[in-house]
Design a protein around this nucleic acid. Structure first.
Length: 1072
RNA sequence: GGGCCAGUAGCUCAGGUGGUUAGAGCGCACGCCUGAUAAGCGUGAGGUCCGAGGUUCAACUCCUCGCUGGCCCA
């Protein structure tokens, strides 16, 4: 072989850092505008929705995870010929943005914001959401997440807000956007509601009253039953608003009478009797009747305080059944004040209970109320307790220490208040949301059926409005003369029309500007002015509107939405279950036919969802800034390369289980794979192809290539199909693993290793076949790899083909000739097992592979010798044996043993299966031989005789005799350990070659240097040299081999080695 | 308190519809190879499949009850 000409295929230097290679690829993509090229391709749509991130926080490693998943499936579908739009978007409204500004300014709460001025505040919010926009874009680009940033949707833009208005007005006009109440945690000092996040920060242990009441039960028409029901509360002040009692539907309740006294009986939940009446209650009480919750619900009761009148038309003083009633505390009977508790409120809706809300914004009772008028509610507890005692309804009073939420700003105990709020009445179309959800292809399914399905099942109306500042304004105008006069404005044109003036060029729909737009009420005879309600909408409504709002639908781009709705695929973290996944579904279901292809017979708005779980730290702990274990993508991506990080995130476990981010695992998993791939490409393919091979007509067609090449191509076709199918099914992890195993195991460790010598030439048909086969294998492999590791796959693919992998087809269309050959693949896997068994046998005998042996005898149950014949030379070479034989039927080497098939026997023998199996396995060689020939064989089990059926037994042939045998799953490999003198000399020749090659290398000879070889040793050496001189000379490039007694003093390298036959001195002299 | 997920070798993970001897990679031990060479390959030792009951001829697998960890909700 001559020195290589100008390199056709660039090598990947092992020391080339992944970061360098990836930066190089990024520059090339940029120069070619490859993203745009990819976006311009494809006819049929594969619709992907990008969930908008908020750019006022830095992107973390978990964002890399989610974005890798999105990118991977989009790349796969794009390579399959679909048009995959990837419009970027930004979520820009909401409380997190406001809080960020509050922190920045060192202010807190609505009063501070009002003092600052809403105009200024919102201006700051608008600017702050872009704080990390650059970093988000850079990171997305760096990790190869292809997204179209040229025209992103921005939720605060006028167009976007107008689409949101359209959706809100559509819901309003169909009575799905309604006014109602919501129970919210409220600080009476700060006069503001708190978000759940704020509430979570403020729990404190406090001592509260613990009050038990005994209330008279009555029949439905008001007659006393003589029994009293026990009720427990820790907030006596809410008794003013009591309207009902709740009991559990299935919990047992008991009615007890005081022993020896004639007074009314008491009723409470059976599990609470000891806790309420005392461990020794049986000394004083006897059970007179058992009740169920349902029976109690037939009765009524008399409320403890009657200061407030009940409104007409609502239920009051009734007993209702509710699942939330617990048997763990209190009496199992819960006092209901719908104005002051979330459960109570919901129950109030369900049972049409009266609603009594006497408390003002500062947490005080109205002056007109007896006893407690003008008092703060918490301060009123003792006075109320005293009144209860006076009225004889107090059973007992004490105190209790428990954890209760307080305002994190001022420490005031929070009150749960009913606040007026705007709702999307999602409960009215809950069934339709569930039906759509059932059509969604969830990955994993349990998130759809479980977490999300359960949540939908317990759906409550979506509290949409927020008493905040930075958000899409709720486009509802209400008349100041009559609150019942209201209108939803669904477009800017409509607003202009109602106000009678066109909107200014710099129109901004946000607060405070929008609140200046008022117009006359058009109700007949009404002279009032329509003013906008003060609220903004939940930011989740913004992001859930993106399917149409990103296109300013229905004002523009109707055709675009027709084509790109609904989504075929979305992917986000599991934390979006109640966030984006829900808001998308709720809005789409509510809008119904206002959107195209959005009937209830659709899964819309998304057909398939891939949900990823969290990224934990290396120890399995949640990453948090507080602990300081947060992994920065900017640290790990340059260190290992985006390819490796991406592949690790996808392949380490299913994406929907939490994964540990352990850098040593990246090295272990992805590092090994990429190293192998690079070695195969650079170390074998490119290095030797550069001596003069490139694809041409001179390459044999696949059918004319050696069987091992045909096997390689068959495996390639199989893996190509498998990975494509996995990705079609959204199983990225299985696809990645299949690909990695293929490259490491089939390509590198089997095909390349066995065929290395074929690459040392570039001209023979055999070599051309090998190059062509490996070339095809690498081309297809890089295509399969492209969605996972877009950088190195593109680098190699460009070298191999001159084109970008990202514009290549993911899957070839194969002729029948090139399809998988299942029989060949199975045969090869048998051969590989036999090779493994043979190596184990050699290991046991301590005969190294260099020492040839005469024969391997094997048994392969499901193949005939003829069927394996083509592959046997591979086996002979791998195990260094002269020939491979099969232990045929009748051969003395074969002994038959029956293996019981429990599945078959179990059906017929039931309990006697173990015995039947034992009998089957004890059948003699001769019986099994006869059975193989078709003779009837019977077995006696438990005194009865049964015919043996073919499916009852697997006949396994053992090789036996003086050979060294290894077995696995019915495959046997037996080595003949005899080393004849001939074999011994051949082994010595190979040993010599090996040592001489090591000397050449140690002496730094070039691979192509010619040498003179002088050997001296005993007579056996002479015999070896005589027999194998040309072999040795050919292997070590010796022009001359001598057996001189005196070694040349001028030799470049001299060494004495010890062989079985004694010591041998070797001298090498370079001669060119 | 409720829902969902996970618990298999030292580590990270595979293990359709129950069925013969529970697998892989890494790590470890021993060895091979020396023209992929700051590479490559093999062999081997490692497991009460979280625990306790149950169903079954047969349970890592199905059922019940627990334990531990995680997420979400109350």
């Amino acid at each position: 072989m001559t020195a290589p000409p100008a390199a056709r295929y660039a090598l990947l230097p092992p020391e080339l850092a992944a970061d360098t290679l990836e930066q190089e690829m990024l520059a090339r993509w940029e120069a070619e505008d490859l993203v745009a090229q990819s976006l311009a391709r494809g006819d049929e749509e594969f619709v992907f929705f990008e969930g908008p991130p908020t750019a006022n926080g830095r992107p973390g490693i978990h964002h890399v995870f989610a974005r890798t998943i999105k990118d991977l499936f989009c790349r796969h579908r794009a390579m399959k010929g679909y048009h995959v739009g990837r419009k970027a978007g930004w979520d820009t409204h909401g409380l997190p943005v406001e809080i960020e500004i509050e922190k920045q300014l060192g202010i807190s709460g609505k009063r501070d914001i009002e003092a600052l001025g809403v105009e200024t505040f919102n201006k700051l919010c608008r600017e702050s959401v872009w704080k990390y926009k650059g970093e988000w874009e850079q990171l997305s680009a760096r990790i190869g997440y292809w997204l179209d940033y040229s025209d992103p949707y921005i939720t605060y833009s006028n167009d976007y807000v107008e689409s949101v208005w359209w959706a809100l007005a559509t819901l309003y006009d169909t009575k799905m956007l309604v006014r109602g109440h919501k129970i919210l945690p409220y600080c009476p000092r700060c006069e503001t509601t708190l978000s759940s996040h704020e509430v979570a920060q403020g729990y404190q242990d406090v001592e509260d009253p613990s009050v038990y009441l005994a209330l008279d039960l009555t029949t439905p028409d008001g007659a006393p039953t003589g029994a009293r029901i026990l009720v427990w509360t820790t907030t006596p002040w809410t008794l003013v608003s009591n309207v009902a009692l709740a009991v559990h539907p299935t919990m047992p309740y008991v009615e007890l009478a005081r022993l020896g006294r004639k007074e009314s009986t008491v009723i409470l939940a059976e599990p609470r009797v000891r806790a309420v009446l005392g461990e020794d209650f049986e000394d004083r009480w006897e059970v007179v009747r058992n009740w169920t919750g349902a029976e109690l619900a037939m009765l009524r009761y008399r409320r403890p305080l009657d200061w407030l009148p009940y409104p007409a038309g609502a239920n009051h003083e009734v007993i209702v059944v509710e699942d939330f009633v617990s048997g763990d505390d209190g009496t199992g009977v819960v006092h209901m004040a719908p104005a002051f508790g979330a459960d109570d409120y919901q129950a109030g809706k369900r049972h049409n209970l009266a609603f009594l809300q006497p408390v003002n914004g500062r947490g005080e009772f109205p002056d007109a109320l007896p006893v407690v008028g003008g008092m703060h509610v918490k301060k009123a507890d003792p006075a109320i307790t005293a009144v209860l005692e006076d009225r004889g309804v107090l059973w007992k009073a004490g105190t209790l220490v428990h954890s209760y939420p307080h305002c994190w700003r001022c420490g005031t105990p929070l009150l749960y208040y009913a606040r007026e709020s705007w709702f999307v009445s999602t409960t009215s179309f809950k069934d339709r949301m569930m039906a759509r959800n059932d059509r969604v292809d969830w990955h994993p399914p349990e998130v759809g059926a479980g977490r999300f399905g359960e949540w939908l099942e317990n759906n409550v109306d979506w509290a949409l409005s927020r008493d905040r500042y930075w958000g899409s304004p709720l486009p509802i105008w209400v008349c100041d003369a009559d609150g019942a006069h209201a209108v939803a404005i669904g477009s800017y044109a409509q607003l202009a029309k109602r106000t009678g003036a066109s909107l200014p060029a710099d129109f901004d729909p946000h607060k405070p500007y929008i609140d200046a737009y008022t117009f006359a009420c058009d109700h007949e005879g009404c002279t009032g002015t329509m003013k906008r309600v003060p609220e903004v909408v939940d930011t989740w409504f913004d992001s859930g509107s993106m399917p149409f709002a990103q296109w300013h639908y229905p004002f523009e781009n109707k055709a675009m939405v027709e084509r790109r709705y609904p989504a075929d695929f979305i992917a986000e973290g599991v934390d979006q279950t109640r966030g984006w996944f829900y808001s998308l579904l709720a809005i789409a279901t509510g809008l119904g036919s206002a959107l195209p292809r959005n009937g209830d017979d659709q899964a819309a708005p998304y057909r398939a969802v891939v949900v990823n779980d969290m990224v934990l730290d290396a120890q399995g702990a949640k990453m948090s800034k507080h602990i300081g274990n947060v992994v920065s993508p900017w640290e790990v991506v340059p260190r290992y390369g985006a390819d490796a990080v991406r592949l690790f995130l996808i392949a380490s476990s299913q994406v929907w289980v939490p994964r540990r981010f352990d850098e040593s695992m990246i090295r272990e998993m992805a590092g090994r794979f990429f190293l192998t791939l690079k070695n195969v490409y650079s170390g074998i393919f490119a290095q030797y192809a550069n001596f003069g091979w490139s694809p041409s007509e001179a390459d044999p067609v696949p059918a004319d290539r050696p069987v091992v090449d045909r096997w390689m191509l068959s495996r390639l076709a199989t893996v190509e199909r498998e990975i494509d199918e996995r990705l079609e099914q959204y199983d990225a992890t299985a696809a990645a693993r299949a690909l990695m195993d293929f490259v490491v195991d089939d390509v590198s460790n089997w095909y390349v290793r066995l065929n290395r010598a074929r690459f040392y030439d570039v001209d023979t048909a055999d070599s051309r076949a090998a190059f062509a086969t490996l070339h095809e294998t690498l081309v297809v492999t890089t295509r399969l790899l492209a969605p996972f590791a877009p950088f190195v796959s593109d680098w190699i693919h460009r070298e191999l083909t001159g084109t970008s992998v990202h514009l290549a087809p993911f899957r070839r269309s194969l002729g029948t000739e090139e399809e998988s050959n299942e029989v060949l693949e199975r045969a090869m896997s048998r051969v590989r097992v036999l090779a493994k068994l043979g190596r184990a046998a050699r290991e046991e005998m301590e005969i190294k592979v260099r020492q040839p042996l005469s024969r391997l005898v094997c048994v392969v149950p499901d193949f005939t010798a003829a069927a394996l014949e083509d592959l046997l030379p591979l086996l002979a070479s791998e195990l260094n044996v002269k020939r491979v034989e099969f232990a045929e039927s009748g051969s003395a080497l074969a002994t038959r043993v029956g293996k019981a098939n429990y599945r078959s026997l179990g059906k017929r023998f039931g309990k006697r299966t173990p015995e039947a199996a034992r009998i089957v396995e004890s059948l003699a060689n001769e019986q099994l031989l006869a059975f193989e020939r078709g003779d009837m064989v019977t077995i006696d089990v438990d005194g009865a005789t049964y015919p043996l059926l073919p499916e009852d037994v697997t006949i396994v042939r053992h090789a036996s005799g003086s050979l060294l045998v290894r077995e696995e799953n019915g495959l046997f490999a037996a080595l003949d350990p005899t080393i004849t003198p001939e074999l011994r000399r051949e082994g010595m020749a190979r040993e010599l070659v090996s040592k001489i090659q090591q000397m050449r290398k140690a002496a730094r000879f070039a691979v192509s240097d010619r040498v003179r070889l002088d050997l001296s040793g005993g007579p056996e050496l002479a015999a070896v040299v005589e027999e194998y001189e040309s072999y040795i000379a050919g292997e070590v490039l010796a022009n001359e081999v001598t057996l001189a007694g005196d070694l040349a003093e001028t030799a470049d390298a001299v060494q004495t080695i010890v062989l079985d036959a004694g010591s041998v001195r070797i001298a090498l002299t370079r001669v060119n």
